[in-house]
């Protein structure tokens, strides 16, 4: 019997531990925010992970340029922001980006001249299937900082281009869950509805909601980006024009004029729509043949 006593004590302690664990586990879950973290990165890095998120977003940009990217020492002369990541050829943002990425300049000495044989010195962008190479970095960046909205919009843009609309929608919905007030994500979701699902009603809902969110942010003094107001208003105006709601389309274009850097083109479109509305108005005389 004496021999058994230590084993019995051990067994008793083990049972005690097990019983306590079943009681405490449920309570311990609520003790700290860290315990509620739903992925390993949150548990390991806590809020510090947001610091790394930007690094991975930049890594996506580096990958997009096949390694040709300004260092912190070149950045005064190089591109800032991420709009070039989604700019089409011919866009002003694209042209501006092309100019600003000529950051290397002529070599200052023989060491720099020789060193350029061992580094990427051509400004190129990914094309074809290679464009998907930036996606892992964007996904990691979103995991690290779910509040970084541009990660979702840039990834969705490329996923759309790569004919991966369902993945783009899923990723944008994840972004919207993390950023319910983001008009940028709502705009991208609207584009998916309009261009992929061909569902103008849903696209309208998204863009109208996006406009409201933009207005709420402006009212709260957050100075939201005018570029996105322009995008939302113009896309919604096109949709309303297609649906025959010319009055609403004109209103939206007038809203876009306040935000666009090129108001002349929009003004011409408004005038065209005004003419069409006048022609369709009840009592208007039929056009002369």
């Amino acid at each position: 019997m004496k021999r058994l006593v230590p084993y019995l004590i051990l067994g008793l302690l083990a049972v005690g531990c097990f019983s306590l664990a079943t009681v405490l586990q449920a309570r311990a879950y609520g003790w700290s925010r860290r315990a509620q973290a739903d992925n390993i990165l949150k548990v390991l890095l806590g809020d510090g992970r947001r610091l790394f998120a930007n690094h991975f977003f930049i890594q996506a940009d580096v990958s997009f340029h096949s390694g040709y990217y300004p260092s912190i020492f070149d950045q005064a002369r190089a591109a800032q922001g991420s709009r070039h990541l989604t700019a089409e050829e011919g866009d002003p943002a694209h042209e501006e980006h092309e100019k600003s990425m000529d950051f290397l300049g002529p070599p200052r000495d023989w060491i720099e001249r020789f060193g350029r044989h061992f580094m990427v010195t051509d400004h190129t962008h990914l094309h074809g299937d290679n464009e998907s190479e930036i996606l892992p970095w964007l996904k990691i960046s979103a995991e690290l900082d779910p509040q970084k909205v541009e990660t979702y919009t840039v990834a969705a843009y490329w996923l759309r281009k790569l004919n991966k609309a369902p993945e783009a929608e899923e990723f944008l919905r994840e972004g919207l869950r993390n950023n319910p007030n983001s008009h940028e994500i709502l705009f991208e979701l609207g584009r998916l509805s309009a261009e992929y699902h061909h569902d103008p009603a849903r696209a309208r809902k998204m863009w109208e909601l996006g406009l409201r969110k933009w207005a709420d942010q402006e009212a709260a003094g957050q100075k939201p980006d005018l570029f996105h107001l322009d995008q939302l208003a113009v896309h919604l105006a096109r949709l309303e024009e297609k649906e025959g709601n010319l009055v609403r389309a004109i209103e939206l274009l007038q809203l876009a004029i306040k935000a666009t850097p090129h108001p002349e083109a929009l003004q011409r479109q408004i005038e065209e729509l005004e003419q069409r509305r006048a022609a369709h108005a009840p009592g208007a005389s039929p056009p002369a043949r």
Binding site: S66, G67, F114, G115, H117, F118, M119, V120
Partner: peptide
């Protein structure tokens, strides 16, 4: 200049061979 010998970007992004003379 040890940084010359770091040609990872050329490998990762499938760039051309470096000149053998270099």
């Amino acid at each position: 200049h040890l940084e010359w010998y770091d040609v990872r970007d050329l490998i990762i992004y499938d760039h051309q061979l470096i000149g053998w003379g270099d």
